[in-house]
């Protein structure tokens, strides 16, 4: 949960890492962020919702709350792919947006970069935990002129052993070899990055994501066979 402003930067952010408490904490998180930012709901321009990919229950609580809060405040709810926010942050787009500078993909060639500075032209493979021994992944080639991550393929689901093959299939083996990978055990989605990504997308006149949750899995259910005999 975060409140961000195109000019003012990140005004407030709170993250709850306990994946079993989404429904409990969501109200207090919204209230805390609004209070910390000193902003009333009707002062917001919009609400940005991360549509995943993500495991079932938590994703749903987040989207339900984002839509309902926006509806309650009379503001638009703008859907985004959560992996785009991770890429936006990791590739340095968030930092650039906050500093107000334009990205410079040539910077790494013309000047000695800070050791930890993100490279906006570097291929990035965002990998997050999908539970049940599976991973969600998205491939990005870097940031574009507007400082927005360039997505190479739609988010997908893969088993760890089959990840490289799946990525190579849509992005090529060179990408697999070169891309920096996020650690699926510790890659939370920053709500501040999500919010600021929304600001930059809107300013650049780019489209938002489709308004549907990215579960990337069918519900757990099997069609029953004939009733079991009891005698």
């Amino acid at each position: 949960m975060a409140v961000v402003d195109r000019d003012g930067g990140v005004l407030a952010e709170v993250t709850e890492l306990d994946t079993r408490r989404h429904a409990e904490v969501i109200g207090e998180s919204i209230a805390f962020c609004l209070d910390a930012a000193g902003v009333a709901p009707d002062e917001l321009s919009a609400v940005v919702a991360g549509m995943g990919p993500g495991p079932f229950t938590g994703l749903r609580v987040g989207i339900a709350a984002a839509r309902a809060f926006a509806f309650g405040a009379g503001k638009p709810c703008l859907p985004l792919i959560s992996h785009d926010a991770i890429a936006f942050e990791r590739l340095g787009g968030l930092a650039l947006a906050i500093s107000g500078e334009a990205p410079d993909p040539a910077a790494t060639e013309t000047a000695a970069p800070e050791p930890a500075a993100p490279d906006p032209a570097a291929p990035l493979l965002v990998i997050t935990d999908a539970r049940r021994r599976e991973l969600y992944w998205s491939a990005f080639s870097g940031l574009d002129d507007a400082g927005l991550p360039v997505r190479l393929a739609a988010p997908e689901l893969a088993r760890p052993a089959e990840l490289d093959e799946a990525v190579a299939g849509s992005c090529g083996s060179a990408f697999v070899a070169e891309a920096t990978r996020t650690d699926p055990t510790s890659t939370p989605v920053s709500a501040a990055a999500l919010g600021m990504l929304g600001e930059v997308l809107f300013a650049a006149g780019r489209p938002f994501a489709r308004d549907e949750p990215l579960y990337l899995r069918s519900p757990d259910v099997t069609v029953p066979g004939a009733p079991k005999r009891v005698s």
């Binding site: 109200g27 229950t57 309902a68």
Partner: peptide, 23 residues
């Protein structure tokens, strides 16, 4: 059902905060 209840609970809290109503 827990997963079903959570959708309503999450939405209700957010709606109440967005509209400024007691819940």
């Amino acid at each position: 059902l827990a997963g079903a209840l959570m959708v309503g609970v999450g939405a209700a809290k957010a709606l109440a905060l967005g509209a400024g109503k007691p819940l």
